[in-house]
Write a protein that binds this DNA or RNA. Structure first.
Length: 434
DNA sequence: ATATCCCGCCAAGAT
DNA sequence: ATCTTGGCGGGATAT
């Protein structure tokens, strides 16, 4: 019957084939292989000859990082979730491991996750976001101006030049600069980390936290995040990564895609403003221009459509998997639960929290939003923290967690005080989503 | 044509 | 060596 476009089996086979072909290639680093196999041409299977098959046309949207992230969140943003295994996640979500890394890296960058060990993460939840952002801001202040590390490539260039000069050895052998560069890259072993998705995410977010403008296009961001040395290639790569990041941040409702101006280039707008208590007097910067924004629901509408498409796929996939992998019973149970909640009535209790509701503080929140009771909530939050505590056995982590709780309290009181329009805004979106 | 951005190769890092 | 991470960019899709 249905035959979903890409079943796990197919993926596995494709991967195997690709691996086989790859292994046939010479080990040479060369310049990057140019003849990529690309075993998966796409197409829904049944096709045959002509334009028909009015249904289930393969769409890359079904596999977008944003959608994946959404699913990831519905899967793990629950009270009883503590640890996350990457394999488990990949299996549940029906994607390859590689994609999980992408998600997890940006999630960790905004404080929703913490890496606990190899293959293992701890779920913090949206409550971790405020602190993460705060620390981001702080680190930025210390960092003086320069965001993170612009122009790393420039540096390399300079260094290679430096080395190009005969420091010693008058008759230095004409080692090609590329070799030296290689050496340098190895020497500066943190080079890899400098380009990590996680760091890039943080720097991207810093752009919003630092600058007044809360809207920025990815091109601009890329230009800012790179130094001056915007070589076409680097720019391209950077922008690609920024797309990835932007998509998951969007699905987290931390940013939203908009059409700058009227029909100008698309850009991304920061939605986490309320998180940054820029309080001069105690009054938060309540909400940006209400009327000017265009899309807001449209973006979500689009994704909702995707979710719809995805649902049936996911569903059947899970079914299949249930038979296939009898082993991880817990995992499967989790999957099913998640899917069920995704399909039908979600958390019967409520919803409403904006993007940063404390993980697991569900019912405490539902009061309709007119009773102050900040203190009460803080209390609730504390009690929640008590239930968390067992996880944090050592002092350092305990402190960290305390800090986290405090940050949350601060943020929350300010938030409740200031913009609740924002909350509506968020709540609406999130409600749509979950 | 340009904008998006998924896919998966394969090289660093860990074990 | 094997396994885990994840940079990177080709090129398919979306617009």
């Amino acid at each position: 019957m249905s035959a979903s476009p890409s079943s796990v089996a197919e993926v596995a086979v494709a991967a195997a084939a690709a691996a086989a072909m790859a292994s046939a290639l010479p080990q040479e680093k060369q310049q990057q292989q140019q003849a990529r196999p690309r075993p998966r041409p796409m197409h829904a299977g049944g096709g045959g000859g002509g334009a028909n098959g009015r249904h289930h046309a393969y769409s890359r949207k079904d596999k977008s990082l944003g959608l994946l992230c959404s699913n990831f969140v519905v899967l793990y943003n629950r009270d009883d979730v503590e640890f996350i295994g990457l394999d488990e996640a990949a299996k549940c979500l029906g994607v390859e491991r590689r994609r999980i890394y992408d998600i997890v890296n940006v999630l960790e960058s905004v404080g929703i996750l913490v890496r606990k060990a190899k293959n293992r993460y701890t779920w913090i939840g949206f409550g971790g976001v405020p602190m993460a952002l705060r620390e981001l801001k702080i680190s930025d202040d210390e960092d003086d101006d320069t965001l993170g590390n612009p122009g790393a490539d420039i540096e390399n260039e300079k260094l290679s030049q430096t080395l190009d000069n005969p420091s010693d050895k008058p008759g230095a052998p004409p080692l090609p600069p590329s070799i030296w560069l290689r050496i340098l890259v190895v020497t500066f072993s943190d080079h890899r980390k400098e380009k990590s998705l996680g760091l890039l995410t943080q720097n991207f977010v810093k752009l919003f936290l630092t600058m007044e403008v809360d809207t920025i296009s990815l091109d601009e961001a890329a230009k800012l995040l790179l130094g001056e040395g915007h070589e076409e290639t680097n720019m391209r790569t950077k922008v690609r990564r920024l797309y990835d990041i932007a998509n998951v941040l969007s699905s987290l409702n931390l940013i939203e895609k908009i059409q700058q101006g009227d029909s100008r280039k698309p850009a991304f707008r920061w939605l986490g403003r309320a998180t940054m208590p820029n309080t001069e007097n105690g009054v938060t910067v309540a909400v940006p221009p209400p009327g000017k924004t265009t899309s807001n629901k449209r973006a979500f509408g689009t994704e909702l459509t995707n979710i719809d498409i995805h649902r049936s796929n996911l569903d059947s996939k899970i079914q299949k998997k249930a038979k296939l992998a009898q082993s991880g019973g817990d995992v499967l149970t989790n999957c099913k639960l998640a899917v069920r909640s995704q399909l039908g009535q979600v958390k019967q209790s409520g919803f409403v929290y904006g993007p940063f509701h404390p993980a697991g503080a569900r019912k405490h929140e539902l009061d309709g939003g007119n009773k102050p009771g900040q203190r009460e909530r803080a209390q609730d939050w504390e009690s929640l923290s008590a239930s968390f505590r067992p996880q944090y056995q050592n002092q350092a982590l305990g402190d960290l967690f305390a800090h986290y709780v405090e940050a949350w309290k601060t943020w929350y009181s300010e938030f409740a005080q200031g913009s609740n329009i924002m909350q509506q805004h968020f709540g609406h979106s999130v409600n749509h989503f979950l």
